[in-house]
Design a protein around this nucleic acid. Structure first.
Lengths: 94, 94
DNA sequence: CTACTTGTTCGTAATATTGCGAACAAAGAT
DNA sequence: ATCTTTGTTCGCAATATTACGAACAAGTAG
């Protein structure tokens, strides 16, 4: 009954379903990439909590992390980002 | 730190974060309105479960229900739908 | 009035989410 | 080799989500 595109759309939407994750994605969209330390400084949450949110975004496929020295550089996963964009566009253009 | 638009966007996204709710919204977008019985016939879930999903969509402001005889007619809440659309558009056009 | 239809609400259970601090791992600096 | 920095993982707790069936309300039909 419910098809794969609907599941994928729901998956992406779920990942967007928290203010912190929205903020993170906005930050990454604006400025290419960033380190999680940059985010911890700004956000009023524990670093372990931020780490979990980043993990969820990673598992949803919306971001990717690249080890770089002691830090990890997070970027948008452009391919999946585009898919989410298209699925949502199609959804609202119904 | 986190502003109201981000919270509202996250709220809408959260409401979209389940395949059944995506399906319901697609159905309502396509054909004006429908009764929850129409949905129960098609979806492989208990009517009480569907009722909960409809309640969440209602509380998120994305749909509205209108009592009509023994049934309830559900429609998109166009005002909030448009807001969600705009917030998401702005989000992805970053 | 007594069914019947339609949908919500309640009670329950299993699982997921959110959040924190403490402990841990990995790599660079001293 | 030791310390520092950076971020993850673990353990825990509180709350939310998802789902079902049974019971309940509200209106229609007989």
């Amino acid at each position: 009954m419910i098809q794969d595109p609907q599941k994928r759309l729901a998956r992406y939407a779920k990942a967007l379903g928290h203010p912190v994750r929205i903020f993170v994605l906005q930050t990454l969209s604006n400025q290419a990439c960033c380190y999680s330390g940059d985010l911890t400084e700004v956000l009023p949450i524990a670093k372990s909590t931020l780490s979990q949110h980043l993990k969820e975004l990673k598992e949803a496929g919306l971001i990717q992390g690249e080890t770089e020295a002691p830090r990890i550089k997070y970027c948008i996963n452009k391919e999946n980002w585009k898919e989410a964009q298209q699925l949502l566009k199609a959804f609202f253009d119904l």
